[in-house]
Design a protein around this nucleic acid. Structure first.
Length: 269
DNA sequence: CTCCTATCCTGCGAGC
DNA sequence: TGCTCGCAGGATAGGA
């Protein structure tokens, strides 16, 4: 479910829900998700100062710390009026509402932020693709000496954050770049284009409310619409919507990858 | 370093 | 209808 656009939509939903709210306490319903959830989370309380996103992480800032959350593949937050399987933690608000973290596969992370809002998981992350410093020049510096394919490089959170399997495929299609192209072989004009296309695809996805695959929903239960705009993701064997060529698929870096052999090239011709 | 694979876990759809 | 298999938005450890 969650790549940068989906996490950003969750963030803005939580921001709206938590604006002016205060945390009364946190209940943990099991010991761990992907990692152990620290017992010190239970002692957090007080007014919500901010709801931030960094990479695919959510940060709920409270005085003296806060909550760090990564949604993994299947994490979600909802205002609970019921109890469901895989509810792993409950944030009790002072007004009586209960905000519940649910995560069937338990690939997510819930941890406590330091009082300064930092966390070891937030160190060593790469460029935010929607920030001004995300340019072809930045990509050139990241990709230098990388001989592996560009798609896994684009998904490496130490280089560029927030881009996962869907948006990597869609961005490379839009940029006309074959996902197998050695990252370090790409030159400036194409990297400028790639940076531009990544930014454009992510921004459009946010505007469309994200991509609802199987279970992604907004905090209010609405679906996103960007899944209807996919040009290549999940379309292996089907015709390219631009040129009609049959889209090709193979695993890259262990992830399903689809591209158009005609529209996407390793070199410009 | 870089790169590749396997792994964590549950749910769902395809195919038999 | 009911079963098994493969695969899924992510991240990381371990080996080559």
């Amino acid at each position: 479910m969650p790549e940068l656009p989906e996490v950003e939509i969750v963030r803005s939903g939580l921001e709206r829900l938590l604006s002016g709210a205060a945390v009364a306490g946190i209940d943990l319903h099991r010991r761990d998700v992907r990692r152990p959830m620290p017992a010190s989370l239970r002692t957090l309380s007080g007014p919500v100062r901010a709801v931030r996103r960094r990479a695919k992480y959510l940060c709920i800032d409270l005085d003296g710390g806060g909550i760090l959350c990564h949604l993994g593949m299947t994490g979600s937050w909802r205002v609970a009026v019921d109890v469901r399987p895989h509810d792993h933690a409950t944030v009790r608000l002072a007004d009586g509402r209960r905000l519940v973290y649910n995560d069937p596969r338990r690939f997510g992370v819930l941890d406590r932020l330091r009082p300064d809002g930092g966390h070891p998981d937030l160190d060593g992350l790469g460029h935010e693709p929607l920030s001004d410093d995300f340019t072809g020049a930045a990509l050139a510096a990241c990709f230098a000496d990388r001989r592996g394919p560009v798609k896994p490089a684009l998904m490496d959170q130490g280089l560029v954050v927030g881009v996962g399997n869907i948006y990597a495929a869609e961005s490379l299609f839009r940029a006309g770049i074959d996902p197998r192209t050695p990252a370090g072989s790409l030159r400036r004009p194409r990297l400028d284009r790639l940076a531009h296309c990544v930014r454009e695809v992510l921004a459009e996805a946010i505007a469309a409310g994200g991509s609802s695959i199987s279970d992604f929903r907004h905090a209010g239960g609405e679906e996103g619409w960007f899944q209807h705009a996919f040009r290549v993701y999940g379309r292996g064997g089907e015709p390219c919507l631009t040129c009609g060529t049959v889209l090709r698929g193979m695993a890259l870096g262990g992830r399903a990858t689809v591209w158009c052999p005609r529209c996407q090239r390793q070199r410009t011709r």
